[in-house]
Amino acid sequence: MEKFVTITSNITPLAIEDIDTDQIIPARFLKATTREGFGDNLFRDWRYDEQNNPKKDFVLNNSDYAGAKILVAGKNFGCGSSREHAAWAITDAGFKVVVSSFFADIFKNNALNNGLLPVQVSQQFLNTVFEKVQADKNLKLNVDLEKQKIEIVGHNVSESFEINDYKKTCLINGYDDIDYLLSIKDKIEAYEKGSKYLSLISK
């Protein structure tokens, strides 16, 4: 996994609530057997019409927001299907951070497992970002994982965000969970030997 560093970037604002993973990447694009290339179909049905022409009014097609590494979305982002393809599509499209006032649980885990940082902010902070980006399309956010701080650059508006120490260490160092789990195999085997339940349910 790529190491996470502090990021300052313009944003892609998507002021819609309850964005489910079927919107992020529709099921018909889940047929690939590798992790790459999902970015082309990120928000496919919001982004392209039936003839595959970009829809002008969709934010990802707006050159004012080009190059953004931070996606900012309405509350309950990533609800629905557990498809990790959603996190792959977002990272593949160049995003490093997703900001929302609320994340669905599975999406949050999937994001963290792919070096994509979900930053949960207050509804007020989110509203402020959406408001300010209307006036200044080049509005930038700074996300500092070490300090757990997100800031609207040049506006003196900032907030701290939560992340557990373990995940923070993983992101900063580019570790993944499997490396850790493989290192404690003896503990897992000891657990198995001691589990009465396992012997009950095994044939």
Binding site: E84, A87, D105, I106, N109, N110, Y166, D177, I178, L181
Partner: peptide, 22 residues
């Protein structure tokens, strides 16, 4: 509960998952 593919790999590799208690 449902998990993502990285977690599928974790379970395949170790029969364990890293989970915060809800």
């Amino acid at each position: 509960f449902g998990i993502g593919t990285s977690e599928v790999e974790q379970v395949m590799a170790t029969q364990c998952l890293m989970q915060s208690k809800p």
